[in-house]
């Protein structure tokens, strides 16, 4: 065992990178669920975002445009879900799952000519002096802009939901759509906007994997994040900062366990391998002891005439 081989600063820096795709996907899903819609198509939107972002970045040479395209692609795919559930009144669980399957298939088709291509690299933010600081430099100031955007997004969602009128309306729709409708709020319109936001966020998360974390395009490359983003929202009891905590915990334990393995620590590898899931869920379950529960109208379809 040689723990000195582990560099804590690099470890924390890489856990932040590992957690960011999860952060994007989970915060998007949180807003969707706050509006009372359960979209299980997160992975479908992520993978489509991953391939659209990758393709755009390769064709234009600009990773930033890639992320814009990824958000657009994720939102576009979520329109399908919005039409199915908000207008056609289809079952949300089934629609979400089929969205995932559709997204996986379509991305494989779209990505065929991009296998093995190297994407343009996104410049890391380089602040003179600050980025060169020991320990603090690589942790706080040495990342790509998207990582900071993810954290800013968490803060923004938290502030909007907690303090603004828009947040209040969103929550009203999610808690009791009939009452919100009676007050004159456009339930369907608000939900569609929430779904679009969720789609865009998932798309960004996918593109973060294909453009920064890996970086390459491979079919089915979102495999590791399949359900954890959804679970995170539930175990974080629909609170943005807990999503951040959960995502960093999950990313953190994932990176730490690989580091411990490489350093030859004598803990059975099976325990290390399952630890990210176990520890994240355990911590969040303990935190959610305060009984904040799911939006009351979660997963229920709304029709004005009923």
């Amino acid at each position: 065992m040689d723990l000195s081989a582990i560099n804590p600063a690099l470890l924390i820096a890489s856990l932040m990178v590992a957690a960011t795709p999860l952060l994007f996907a989970a915060i998007g899903e949180l807003v969707v669920e706050k509006s009372g819609v359960l979209n299980l198509g997160v992975e479908g939107m992520m993978i489509v975002g991953a391939v659209a972002g990758f393709a755009t970045a390769v064709e234009t040479g600009s990773p930033l445009l890639g992320f814009v395209a990824a958000a657009g692609a994720g939102a576009t795919l979520s329109v399908l879900f919005a039409i199915l559930t908000q207008y056609a009144q289809a079952n949300q669980v089934a629609s979400g799952l089929s969205l995932t399957l559709f997204g996986l298939g379509m991305s494989a088709l779209l990505g065929q000519s991009y296998v093995g291509v190297k994407p343009p690299q996104m410049q890391k933010i380089d602040l003179p002096v600050l980025s060169d600081l020991p320990v603090v430099g690589p942790i706080l100031f040495g990342h790509d802009p998207m990582l900071y955007l993810a954290i800013a997004l968490i803060a923004a969602v938290w502030a909007v939901i907690k303090f603004s009128r828009i947040g209040l309306v969103l929550r009203a729709v999610g808690e009791n759509h009939d009452a919100a409708h009676a007050l004159g709020y456009k339930v369907v319109r608000i939900r569609i906007l929430a779904i679009l936001f969720g789609g865009a966020c998932a798309g960004l998360g996918g593109a973060y994997i294909s453009l920064i974390r890996v970086p390459q395009w491979t079919e089915g490359m979102t495999a590791g994040i399949r359900w954890i983003a959804l679970a995170l929202v539930v175990f974080a009891s629909w609170k943005p900062w807990r999503v951040l905590l959960g995502a960093y915990l999950f990313g953190g334990v994932t990176v730490v366990q690989l580091n411990l393995q490489a350093a030859g620590v004598a803990i059975p590898v099976e325990y290390l391998a399952m630890s990210p899931y176990l520890i994240t869920i355990l911590v969040l379950v303990i935190l959610s002891a305060d009984k904040s529960s799911a939006p009351a109208a979660l997963g229920r379809n709304f029709h004005a005439a009923r």
């Binding site: 690099l10 590791g224 490489a262």
Partner: peptide, 14 residues
């Protein structure tokens, strides 16, 4: 892919 990339990065960092 994401996990494999993480594993490679960890090994390189060490």
């Amino acid at each position: 892919p994401a996990k494999e990339a993480d594993a490679a990065k960890v090994l390189i960092e060490q």
